[in-house]
Design a protein around this nucleic acid. Structure first.
Lengths: 335, 335
DNA sequence: TTGTAAGCGTTATCAG
DNA sequence: CTGATAACGCTTACAA
């Protein structure tokens, strides 16, 4: 244990132990070809000097940083935090370190993120970000960093993906609703620029309604609890809005609609029904509980990290994984 | 733009541009001493070849990784995600990259995390983790990596801290409660190993009750919504528990108590009052809304990152910052 | 089994 | 203003 400013280097250890740096290197890399005696000697002086190898130098020499990059729009969403948690778990198991890149939902940030990822010299990336296109991912891959991409259909030499499937569950839910002879049109809360996932759901919503020949509503709103809450306080003043089924992006938005309704004395689910598309644990913490589509994001994170390590070891068999969203019924819908 | 496997190096750029690598280095480092003509020539071939400098090599040469480590128990808590979000924002501004280290609430993980942080060669760390002691932080500092420590009183040559203060607000809240001539004893939900913050609050709770000569209760529970919810479903069956004031660690726990109460037909706040110590936005999403102590963790993250960059630039004036928790009244308490 | 020496891709100090 | 050349701390053939 030392207290000096400068790091102890492998060279100093070698000198103190009376061996060459190659031998020290062999010891820290657990190479077998080294006498127990010298191994011990080296280990002791490593201990005595408090030597820790420089990951930087190792990475430069081996061309492996044991570091993987995670690209997300922000750390501030519960479902992303859940995913991050799953990633960290497996990363630890596989002895990788994580570096975080956020794009703040902006294209400009996304561009500069790509640069950063490349100079950062990560061994691979996990990407869950709507700002990054297939071209961007290919560009990253062209610098020899493989990626697993979440919620985007991209595959290539060094790219695999994990896709979410909401289609079946969502379509069935819509059909079921009208079969229970509900005549109030469903409403879809459209959030501008909220990304692919919501976009795909909206498409399913539209298609299914067209197929059924049913009317529907699109309500524009923001991706913020407070703003949506305020908006729906106004919205629910109109009696014609006080009935119907509202499909919301995520728990916060659904909760905003839910609270605006109940705070205005509207009965949920008797008058107004609500669905959250991206459910987290908050869907069962609010009252009434929210009916929500669930995907275990922690599991997605783990899966992504496993796929990535397989990809890095060139032993990945399946280049794509599909994860079905699960409808969990709560008290915010009638059935 | 190239598609080859191996990275383009500075040397290849130099050769292609017909200059020495020193010149290329000057160009990418925006050194002034280089002719506009050659600068352009170099920049063009950099563009043409799609060259990105290796951060690894730069770090090794300059002894600066422009990378800071964040040490937290898990990414899976909302308030930590908020903090992370604040950190990323400033990190981006200051051109630092973030690497994430999680200790999973375990001492063993914490130990190995220290090793990892040191070999990772980060320029500094932000630590919000109860598993790391002052000694651990000092050890990290002895390897010449400065730290800002959150919610722990540690200062040193290269260490500064940000502390949370709950004492004043909490004590006043308790005194106010009994002055409103409430005779039902308050209850403190004790979570085993939940860390310093809760421990300090418990101490204030005990001291204030002793000073007032009031009875109190300690209820043991787990740091999990579901478990606490189940526990309190049982707990509230006992009529003697159906009155009182419950002080809970964080929103999830408070919501568990809240829901267990309301689901059992107990009136909140008329019969049972509830306080959350670590409030997040979920405290105003549940119904009734939760009275909670709030600290803006996003702001804490920003502040931490600012302190760290100041520390790194040796221009930090104040080695410690204190942040007062803010009591925000909701519907879960009477006043 | 161990040591020597040539990289890994930069920066930085000299001369020129 | 530009070009050699020596670090930076480590790994890894190749020799011994």
């Amino acid at each position: 244990m030392q207290n000096l400013k400068d790091r102890v280097t492998i060279y100093q250890v070698a000198q103190a132990a009376g061996v060459s740096l190659a031998t020290v290197s062999r010891v820290i890399n657990k190479s077998d070809s080294v006498t127990p005696a010298t191994r011990k000697k080296v280990q002791d002086t490593i201990e005595a000097l408090g030597y820790k190898p420089s990951g930087l130098a190792q990475a430069l020499a081996t061309n492996r940083s044991t570091n993987i990059g995670v690209i997300i729009p922000s750390a501030n969403y519960v479902y992303l935090a859940n995913m991050l948690s799953g990633i960290t778990e497996v990363a630890k198991e596989k002895n990788y370190t994580l570096t975080l890149f956020t794009t703040s939902h902006s294209r400009d940030e996304a561009i500069s993120t790509i640069e950063k990822v490349i100079t950062a010299h990560v061994d691979g990336t996990i990407i869950f970000d709507d700002q990054l296109s297939a071209d961007d991912v290919t560009k990253i891959a062209s610098y020899n960093v493989p990626s697993v991409v979440i919620d985007n259909k991209i595959q290539g030499d060094k790219v695999c993906d994990i896709r979410f499937s909401y289609d079946t569950a969502l379509e069935r839910l819509i059909r079921d609703y009208y079969e229970r002879d509900n005549q109030n049109p469903m409403a879809f809360l459209h959030v501008h620029n909220a990304g692919r996932l919501l976009g795909r759901c909206e498409k399913v919503f539209l298609k299914t309604h067209e197929a059924l020949g049913k009317d529907y509503r699109i309500v524009n709103c923001r991706d913020s609890y407070t703003q949506t809450y305020n908006q729906f306080q106004e919205y629910f003043k109109d009696p014609s809005n006080q009935r119907g089924f509202y499909i919301c992006y995520r728990d916060s938005i659904a909760a905003a609609v839910l609270n605006a309704a109940t705070d205005a004395g509207i009965k949920v689910p008797e008058q107004v029904e609500i669905l959250s598309l991206v459910g987290t644990k908050y869907s069962y913490i609010v009252r009434p509980t929210l009916t929500a589509m669930h995907i275990d994001m922690q599991e997605v994170g783990k899966r992504a990290m496993y796929m990535l390590t397989d990809l890095l070891n060139q032993e990945l068999v399946n280049k794509t994984a599909k994860i079905e969203a699960n409808l969990v019924l709560g008290q915010s819908t009638k059935n």
